[in-house]
Write a protein that binds this DNA or RNA. Structure first.
Length: 566
RNA sequence: CGGGGUGUAGCGCAGUUGGGUAGCGCGCAGCGUUUGGGACGCUGAGGUCGGAGGUUCAAGUCCUCUCACCCCGACCA
């Protein structure tokens, strides 16, 4: 490909709205163009990267026994109502009506469709196991698209679904996929960390995410250096500090004028935050919920949502709290009525705590559970923090940010039961098929790869996903010798079917070098009067500083070797 | 949806306070001189000032409504 003909221009300045690194570089390199919030066009260079990633994924899926198929984007909304996932996805589901006013959804994922498909085509244990996948466009009306390709509304996902006869076989399929995923990330030049995850709207039991650690990641991983435990913060557990055992003292009301937050109360009463109780109010599917948790711990809303088995969860407004007759700032589980109370397990860690009094400007000292209050449900709804104890080994937990580039779920039988995907075993008995699902976001993989492979000059593509392998960069093209040598070398490289981007523009060396670095092509081949004097070309890896001279005659063979080795 | 911000040439911005000729840099086109890490000179093209309505002799600037985009939070590949 000749740069002079390449569709898409590099930019010297980046649009103000791009503040994420991969987003900035993709735009600066002229690889993507934003059409609307979370909707992008891919220009030829980025599209080549996309297709390479797609092929790597396809190869790995096929190698582990997957069969590729294709399912529709347009899906009847009824199907979603049948599994209740129209509610689970809520507004995230793009919906529309056809000319007969039939409701349709744009598929955000395909468990429903694939399960129906399985129910028609899998009848016997002899038909199992199956690994079925597609690489296809998904639509999700994200509340807030962001970060360029990291979070978009229209994106490409490889989604594979496994079908097995029992848990044990499901585990085997699951393991197979985990290994395929590791291969994929490795081949894309990514270091991805596998962590325990919440299964969210997809549902199911075991779930893992693959997170690429980056500076600008939107996910948080809690992990343990010593035993290797790692989990998304949404799922992570931790051992919280416990205050010293004390004998319960009698309740005592204290005046706390104007003190509403835990900080204020703890400061005012000279009591550490972990010896206070905090009240937090949520509204879930229309109902007010009172959450009690130790003052120094934050509520993990994902865990809370799971504990309540609800679709919608949000913090209650002040008005809603007031309307329920609760005194914000001094709310207390003691003597509260008419509200569902959820307690975090942390309330058992410590004695003689400070809680609200359900009276303005008043708190109560020496509150002890179970002596002083009751609740409707106790669960682990605490957010884990770095510095707390590892749930597996007790060592100190740490935290890092990253981008989720893959998610796997053991679905079990939730979909097969709802949608009637059963098989007959060898004894003639009918069972629901055990399912798993496994997703990788391709667009995000591109973004993550840039986040992990770049320098201040631009992108450094790992060879397997680079749009081209060689940046052929002649200097002083108006010099006939340079011109002839460059054209010849270009023709020879093309003849060997090497992937060459030929910068045939009459630009200054600085412009060419900078563009080459920005585009991140792995090998740069420079030809100039200087190199020709030695009858040679200069070769430089994008990832390294040093360059080397190669004889012109040997250049093609040598480059071929270098690319093969990489 | 809650909070914050921005819309003026392809990109980055000034001009809005105090209404009166549409500006700068980069990029783009032509010519010339340069050029081993984003060169310089000259000439030129490019604008519904996000949109609609209003006030005014006159609106990029004032008023009303509206749309889009970005950032922080709830969502997730």
């Amino acid at each position: 490909m000749r740069v002079s003909k390449l569709f898409g221009k590099t930019q010297r300045e980046i649009p103000a709205e791009a503040d994420n690194l991969s987003h900035q570089l993709l735009i600066k390199a002229g690889m993507i163009y934003q059409v609307a919030a979370g909707i992008y066009s891919y220009l030829p260079l980025a599209w080549r990267v996309f297709k390479k990633i797609e092929n790597i994924i396809r190869e790995e899926m096929d190698a582990s026994g997957g069969q590729e198929l294709n399912m529709p984007v347009l899906q009847p909304l009824e199907l979603w109502q049948e599994t209740g996932r129209d509610l689970a996805f809520g507004k995230g589901l793009f919906t529309l009506s056809d000319r007969r006013e039939r409701k349709l959804a744009l598929g955000p994922t395909h468990e429903e469709i694939i399960t129906i498909l399985a129910s028609r085509n899998i009848k016997s244990y002899r038909d199992l196991p199956q690994l079925l996948y597609q690489i296809q466009t998904k639509f999700r009306d994200e509340p807030r698209p962001r970060g360029g390709l990291i979070r978009v509304r229209e994106f490409s996902m490889k989604d594979l679904y496994s079908f097995d006869v029992d848990e044990e076989r499901l585990d085997q399929s699951y393991k197979k996929m985990l290994q395929a995923y590791r291969n994929i990330y490795h081949r894309c030049g990514l270091i991805a960390r596998m962590v325990e995850a919440d299964s969210g709207a997809i549902g199911g039991k075991d779930s893992h995410e693959f997170i690429v650690i980056t500076e600008t990641g939107e996910d948080e991983v809690i992990y343990c250096e010593s035993c290797g435990y790692s989990a998304n913060v949404e799922k992570a557990q931790s051992i919280k500090s416990k205050s010293e055992d004390e004998n319960p003292l009698p309740l005592e009301e204290v005046s706390t004028p104007g003190m509403a937050t835990i900080e204020e109360v703890s400061e005012f009463l000279k009591v550490p935050k972990n010896k206070t109780l905090k009240a937090v109010f949520y509204v879930t599917d229309g109902e007010l919920v009172f959450v009690v948790i130790r003052g120094d711990i934050e509520v993990n809303e994902v865990k809370l949502k799971n504990a309540l088995r609800c679709y919608e969860l949000r913090l209650a407004t002040e008005a809603e709290v007031k309307e329920a007759g609760i005194v914000a700032g001094s709310a207390s589980p003691i003597g509260i009525k008419g509200v569902k109370v959820i307690a975090d397990e942390s309330i058992t860690l410590g004695a003689n705590l400070v809680a609200g009094a359900n009276k303005p400007d008043t708190h109560i000292k020496n509150v002890n559970y179970p002596r002083d209050f009751k609740f409707d449900l106790m669960a682990d709804i605490a957010k884990a923090k770095a510095g707390e104890g590892c749930p597996k080994c007790g060592s100190k937990l740490a935290s890092v940010g990253g981008i989720e580039v893959g998610h796997t779920f053991k679905l079990g039988t939730i979909f097969s039961e709802k949608l009637g995907a059963f098989f007959i075993d060898s004894s003639g008995a009918s069972h629901p098929i055990l399912m798993g699902c496994y997703g990788i976001g391709l667009d995000r993989l591109i973004a993550a790869s840039i986040e992990q492979n770049h320098d201040d000059k631009g992108i450094i593509w790992p060879l397997p996903i680079a749009p081209y392998h060689i940046y052929l960069c002649p200097l002083y093209l108006e010099n006939p010798e340079v011109k002839a040598a460059a054209e010849n070398l270009y023709a020879d490289l093309e003849a060997e079917r090497l992937e060459v981007l030929f910068d045939d523009r009459e630009e200054s060396p600085g412009v060419k070098f900078n563009d080459g670095d920005l585009l991140g092509i792995p090998f740069r081949v420079t030809i100039s009067p200087r190199t020709l004097k030695a009858n040679s070309v200069e070769i430089k890896r994008r990832s390294e500083k040093e360059s080397q001279l190669l004889l012109l005659d040997e250049a093609v063979t040598k480059l071929k070797e270098l690319i093969k080795e990489s």
